[in-house]
Amino acid sequence: MNLSEETLSKIDELIPRYPEKRSAALMVIHLVQEELGAVDLEASEWIAEKLEIQPINIRELITFYPMLRETAWGEKHVRVCRTLPCALRGSYATCKKFEEKLGVKEGHVSEDGKYSIEFMECLADCGEGPVVMVGDQTFENIDEKDADKMADLILKNKLDDSKKFISYEKAVDSVKPSKA
């Protein structure tokens, strides 16, 4: 197990927040997964030891929760919302467009490990559907045409500089709090 000092210290800071160590399981798994991309058997055993529980107690979480992974997603992971409100505004076409452009089917990782797509359940932003997440950023109203342009930017690794596609998170952050 090779975890950075930073992750290790975050884990050590996290565990005592809880009345019982086992409660920290999801948070520790998230930290490990953020660094390693996935939580394999060895990592599960390490986490279990850290939390003084059995490896199966970690494995059963990873196999249950949709966002926990035994194998890593691609370097660029695209999530498209599938659920009804987004579908009513065209998310199936959005997802197809990403599949076509990134050359990988939803639920899969491209052979070179660069891209992956996940057709997800409701991302809780239904008023601005179709909703798409790239990494940890949320993009709203991404119809088929936008998906086409966005995929180009992802392929060129230029989405972060885009003036057209500004994520929900960045937009919220850019609003300065008014002095009441």
């Binding site: 359940e121 409701c122 919220v172």
Partner: peptide, 16 residues
């Protein structure tokens, strides 16, 4: 946990 399809109010409170 806000995950009932069609619901997106908690998101706004938390972020804003």
């Amino acid at each position: 946990d806000e995950s009932e399809p069609g619901t997106f109010k908690d998101r706004q409170i938390i972020h804003k």
